[in-house]
């Protein structure tokens, strides 16, 4: 295969972006069960061919391999799509949509009930659960004693020093603006080294309370437009950037793991 004229750096970067976009599109198509024939195989393969001919690094070759793999997954999905469409189970989604819209809720419910066979099972108390219940019962203080904790008199004299409230996380040593400025400074320092920083890198600290606090502060900074947040479909990760790239405000939920 003869090598074509070498591409400029800008063209290579554009081609790389195209391949990344293709990978994301293939993955989304397979994952959501969308029409796999919407992806033009010939055009995609031509694109990959010209990309690999100008590949300049190992990363480019890896990216090409990844794209080929995802394209083959789309071909597999096309096969499944054809089989499904020719099967007895196939009903046009548009037809189902129109039926759902046109039918009353009572009829829909009746249809479901006529092909619904609920699971039969018995909830039982196991030995470990029984042991746990006995242990709980033995430790339980009498009702009188428990209620006295919340008696009116004890509530009236409850007081906390500034240090105690601070330890409990009810008060902060600094004002909210100061804490916000601290995290903004920290993020901007990270961004000065690289163009974008992975979201989990910023909030990823051992202490759970600290992690939640950082996530909260970060969301405040992003909502106010002081820093930006982008989603990269090729890595399936969120990245914090210097400024917001989107004019369209939208709400995003990001899981920050389980707390303990």
């Amino acid at each position: 295969m003869g090598r074509s004229k070498p591409m400029s750096k800008r063209k290579i970067a554009a081609a790389r972006r195209e391949v990344e976009k293709l990978i994301a599109q293939c993955r989304l198509t397979v994952k959501r069960g969308a029409d796999p024939f919407q992806i033009d195989m010939k055009e995609s393969l031509d694109k990959l061919r010209s990309f690999i001919e100008s590949a300049s690094s190992l990363d480019d070759i890896r990216l090409d391999g990844e794209a080929l793999y995802d394209l083959s997954a789309v071909v597999e999905s096309q096969d499944r799509w054809v089989r499904f469409r020719s099967s007895r189970l196939f009903v046009d989604p548009l037809f189902v949509e129109s039926r759902v819209k046109a039918t009353s809720n009572r009829i829909l419910a009746r249809i479901l009930v006529s092909c619904w066979t609920p699971i039969a099972s018995i909830d039982t108390l196991t030995q470990p659960a029984l042991d746990l219940a006995i242990d709980y019962w033995n430790r339980l203080k009498p009702l009188k004693g428990r209620w006295s904790r919340f008696s009116r008199s004890s509530m009236e004299y409850l007081s906390l020093s500034f240090d105690e409230a601070s330890k409990l996380g009810l008060l902060y040593d600094k004002g909210f603006d100061d804490i916000l400025s601290d995290i903004e400074y920290h993020v901007k320092q990270l961004l000065s080294v690289k163009g974008r920083v992975e979201y989990s890198e910023i909030i990823g600290v051992e202490n759970w309370v600290e992690r939640v606090t950082r996530a909260y502060l970060l969301s405040f900074l992003i909502s106010s437009g002081r820093i930006g947040l982008i989603y990269d479909p090729s890595t399936d990760k969120f990245y914090v950037t210097a400024c917001s790239g989107s004019d369209q405000p939208r709400s995003i939920a990001i899981s920050i793991g389980m707390g303990g």
Partner: peptide
């Protein structure tokens, strides 16, 4: 509730017609 059963019927039928997964 009848409305919940209707939602279940519509969801399962729509997902099944789309090869088992949709957005």
């Amino acid at each position: 509730r009848i409305d919940e059963l209707a939602i279940l019927a519509a969801s399962v039928a729509y997902i099944a017609s789309r090869q088992g997964s949709i957005s």
